[in-house]
Nucleic acid binder design. Structure first.
Length: 277
DNA sequence: AAAGATCACAACCGCATCGTT
DNA sequence: AAACGATGCGGTTGTGATCTT
């Protein structure tokens, strides 16, 4: 249940709100962070006039408001990667998410828990108890489920957006994060390239007018952001689409090494610093 | 058409870790 | 070295939407 008094004034404003975020709260948080960055999350909550904990603000930003998040459903390739990485890394969702630009640990975790794990348990159950009561031959059931696993696409439903992040100016990550910007020509391949030695932390100006190009590699956390200035986040998503990247077949032997190679493609985009126009 | 069941996702909670003083 | 506060992470729960009967 969402109170409709978000951000309301008055003496009781000190009382912390919980539950779903209202569009107004989202807007306040988004505006605050894009204009001023983050010193500490508790101060963000306070300065944005939100009756939320810093923790809650951080979570909302990381999982929902961050402009570099992908909006489209998880693709088959991404699903394969999740399966592969979960197999090699276990439930280290943040590590898995770090290898999947635009996806959050929470999103991946939810995806795993609600779909993949469920399907895998079906496979195990089917093969373990002799096929179940519905008469499906176990092998066929397993195969069917595996096939489903392999082909499953996310349901078509679009995520609901309380306000249009896409209409907002290109935002920048909070100041305290390691920040690297990558600008990649539309349609260009992203190749494994020698790591740039240039890493430029960007200051937040909130105006989206910056055009600095920086490429950083080997960092555990990496933000890419598009500084085209027209606020087109779809372009952003296109440029950095997971499916545009070439990577070794998931699930192949030596997954970690292979994923690292692939990861390096992600994090070491073509240098050259061409801009996006 | 209505009620109940199921599903997907957002958010919270508690603990661990890290950085600062 | 210890204490404290902030942040990060993974597990779990709550809520709204959708599907089924």
């Amino acid at each position: 249940m969402v109170e409709k008094t978000a951000g309301g004034h008055g003496a009781e404003a000190a009382k912390e709100r919980k539950g779903l975020w209202s569009p107004e709260e989202d807007e306040r948080l988004y505006a605050r962070i894009t204009r001023h960055g983050v010193s500490t999350w508790s101060s963000v909550a306070q300065l944005a006039g939100l009756r939320r904990s810093g923790k809650s603000c951080r979570l909302r930003w990381m999982n929902y408001l961050r402009p570099d998040l992908k909006k489209e459903p998880i693709s088959k390739r991404e699903q394969d990667t999740i399966v592969s990485l979960q197999k090699s890394l276990g439930n280290r969702w943040s590590v898995i998410a770090a290898r999947m630009p635009g996806r959050t640990d929470n999103e991946i975790k939810n995806y795993w828990n609600s779909r993949i794990r469920k399907r895998q348990s079906v496979v195990l159950t089917s093969s373990g108890d002799g096929g179940g009561a519905n008469g499906d031959p176990p092998a066929a059931a397993a195969a069917e489920t595996q096939h489903e696993l392999a082909l499953a696409e996310s349901p078509a439903g679009e995520k609901k957006e309380p306000f249009s992040a896409a209409a907002a100016p290109p935002a920048v990550p909070p100041a305290r994060f390691p920040v690297f910007a990558c600008q990649i020509p539309a349609g260009s391949a992203i190749n494994a390239a020698p790591q740039s030695t240039t890493t430029t932390a960007h200051e937040h100006n909130g105006a989206g007018s910056e055009s600095e190009v920086s490429v950083g590699g080997g960092e555990e956390h990496c933000y890419y952001y598009y500084r085209g200035g027209d606020g087109d986040m779809d372009m952003f998503g296109h440029l950095l689409s997971f499916d545009d990247l070439e990577y070794p077949a998931a699930g192949a032997a030596g997954g970690d090494l292979l994923m690292d190679a692939w990861e390096s493609q992600l994090y070491c985009a073509n240098s050259g610093g061409s801009s996006v126009d």
